[in-house]
């Protein structure tokens, strides 16, 4: 187990190396640069800027310098936001995006699995139809529609919850609407996923055996069905986690949340090379680590898997 874990962590290094190298050169292929403006920057100032950010050096030198910095977890100054380094921006935004993401994911998993169980056990009865319709809505309504609708009613009309801004301004209630919005499509997908896999497990031989042994239905469901049926859900959690942290861009914009999603999108528009790179590295780490955690949880749920 420990050896497996170490091997997986070490495999992060070549993965990140490839990601850093590819993105370093790819973003520089895009037309324009960090200092392009509608009011064009005069040549004199442009030269001074390029010098300041070492962009007057050959690309290869810049790459080696950048690799060295990344190893020390130093992403350098943002080309756009002069008061902040990329590390400072990530340090202030990442916990916020993580908190929002984790809250949304927990909400999505708990409610999604619950709805999945109910609709599987009541297959083709009204609770099942309600759950399936809800899931279809959840998957098809985009966040930039759902968010403003919740804002309009809960925030503007009924004035129950704040329309925007984060905990620093409104306290904990600020997290409810954005988390609800962000979790909805994930809730819907998890509900469908768990419903389908519970139905499949219910028909399997070992459940028939459990029932034949005369076990109570609740024991059959909680102990035997769920353990097997949750495997696909757990598999989905890895990409879902990174997706929910990355995908919070829309929610961060709609609800004015100072996370790292919004600056990520802006950084691409602004050609803020260092910020793009910093965020790409952070997201890659999140993705790889989330997948690793999923694989470990797998081992506990599925007796067929062992880590050697």
């Amino acid at each position: 187990m420990a050896r497996y874990f170490i091997r997986r962590v070490l495999s992060l290094i070549p993965t990140l190396f490839v990601i850093v190298t590819l993105s370093f050169f790819l973003i520089r292929l895009a037309p324009g640069g960090p200092f392009a403006r509608e009011k064009a920057v005069p040549e004199i100032i442009l030269q001074n800027l390029l010098k300041r950010y070492h962009m007057d050096e050959p690309l290869w030198n810049q790459y080696v310098r950048y690799l060295g910095d990344v190893v020390r977890w130093d992403f350098g100054p943002s080309f756009r936001y002069r008061d902040l380094t990329v590390n400072e921006m990530i340090d202030s935004g990442l916990p916020i995006s993580m908190l929002l993401g984790v809250t949304s994911l927990v909400m999505a998993v708990v409610s999604g699995v619950a709805v999945g169980i109910v609709s599987a056990l009541k297959q083709n009865k009204w609770p099942d139809y309600v759950a399936v319709s809800l899931a279809v809505i959840g998957i098809s309504v985009p966040l930039f529609v759902l968010g403003p609708i919740l804002q309009l009613f809960v925030g503007l009309r009924w004035k129950i919850l704040p329309m925007g801004q984060w905990i620093s301004t409104h306290g904990w209630k600020a997290i409810i609407l954005p988390a609800l919005t962000l979790s909805f499509p994930y809730f819907a997908y998890i509900a469908r996923l768990s419903r389908a896999s519970i139905l499949e497990v219910l028909r399997s031989d070992y459940i028939r055996t459990a029932r034949a042994k005369g076990l109570k239905e609740s024991v059959v469901v909680w102990k035997h069905v769920l353990k097997g049926a949750l495997l696909p859900v757990v598999t989905y959690l890895g990409p879902a986690f990174s997706g929910i942290v990355v995908g919070s861009v829309v929610v961060e914009t709609v609800f004015l949340i100072p996370g790292i999603g919004r600056p990520f999108v802006q950084s691409a528009i602004n050609r803020d090379y260092t910020l793009i790179m910093g965020e790409v590295v952070v997201y890659s780490v999140i993705l790889v680590v989330a997948n690793l955690l999923v694989d470990i949880i797998y081992g506990f749920l599925d007796p067929r898997i062992s880590y050697k």
Binding site: L156, M163, G164
Partner: peptide, 18 residues
Amino acid sequence: FLANEDANVGYNLYKSGA
């Protein structure tokens, strides 16, 4: 000074009194 570039979000904030 709130940092927001989405005109709809801004307009809703204004309408809500925020």
